[in-house]
Design a binder for these strands. Structure first.
Lengths: 204, 204
DNA sequence: GTCTATATTGTGATAGAC
DNA sequence: GTCTATCACAATATAGAC
């Protein structure tokens, strides 16, 4: 029973392209390498996705959208700021940890094609205003110490993302190439980052 | 008075190559573009630096070393942890702000050639142990709250670096392409990040 | 040391048989 | 839809005149 050979192949190509593009970026990736990864011929790539550009486009859109939906829900939920931070940091680190190369991939593409990425974010439904409003509200209600909400948000994202883009440094320089130690460090981080943030803004 | 034409040209090539490589990365950069930027012919690039690889190597080494020496001094200085954090964060943000594309450049190269970068760091004299020891010491002496020193260090670096690699997002999504607002945000950050860290670890 | 012209290679893309 | 063979061009690199 052979059903929809084309859909299978198309999907296989996309998966292979994801692996190669995410690791090497648009310019660093080779169509041959993607074909090899997918176990098919180079010509097939052009049959399904006319050009390297189109294929990359498909990969980037799908890769990017992986990070988004889960997080939008969390931010809009009606829970306390501390709980929200705990859930957000935990989920975000877990999501990135499943595809740890995505942040560097997006950062590189952000340089190569900033408008494209900004457009994608704008149309994704991400809106920092929900988070910022809640921070301001809890400051007024005297639940947390005064803090600049935008800087707080950037701090939170920074602390979640950075250990992944700096992984080779941490693993190579700090953990002497011991991958397991690095993985432990990442797991610790979910609690460490939350505690660090909450310690900084909680009422004394 | 024409003195050492070759040194001038060699330097001009290196400067031009820095601009192009830092912006586009090794694979994205074109030798022609570097030649144009330097106002000379393509062939000259090969005359002075045999290959694209060698030229990139020279650029990366010099670019990387810009970030290092200033910071090593700070970390080794014998001052209180709070003062050290204040000086480090202020200087680090200022240094990156002068060449804001360097972090993304290094992150990309870190993926492309991790061993090379790790090697460079190891031989640069950077040693996190000084910082970590001081944190542990001040915890024992009851000057600061207990905190994992390694996570603290990563947090500090993350908060300094992230706003630069995410610049197009901040500028495009948050500040509506208003560059000046972004620059103000970066300047604010020196104080915000310090306060945020110190608030989190100071004795209550 | 600097240039123009050219060689060489790599890579995205297409033609055409099956 | 899938493959092999080939094209077309771009990009690195070199030769050789001045």
């Amino acid at each position: 029973m052979t059903t929809n050979k084309d859909t299978n192949t198309e999907q296989a190509i996309l998966e292979a392209a994801k692996i190669v593009f995410v690791k090497k970026g648009m310019e660093g990736a080779r169509m041959q390498e993607i074909a090899d990864e997918a176990g098919i011929n180079k010509a097939m790539l052009h049959y399904y996705y006319r050009s390297k550009d189109k294929l990359f486009e498909a990969v980037f859109t799908e890769t990017f959208s992986k990070l988004v939906p889960n997080l939008i829900e969390i931010v809009k939920t009606d829970i306390s700021l501390f709980d929200k931070i705990r859930i957000f940091v935990g989920n975000y680190i877990d999501i990135i940890n499943e595809n740890p190369l995505i942040p560097a991939f997006i950062i590189h593409e952000l340089n190569r094609n900033p408008d494209r990425v900004v457009e994608l974010i704008k149309s994704s439904g991400i809106n920092p205003i929900f988070f910022i409003n809640q921070v301001e509200k809890e400051i007024i209600e005297d639940i947390i110490e005064p803090v600049n909400p935008l800087h707080l948000m950037v701090n939170m994202l920074a602390m979640c993302v950075f250990p992944f883009v700096a992984r080779p440094i941490l693993e190579g320089v700090i953990f002497n190439e011991d991958r397991e130690q690095y993985e432990i460090f990442i797991q610790e981080r979910k609690k460490e980052v939350c505690d660090f943030i909450i310690n900084s803004i909680k009422k004394k």
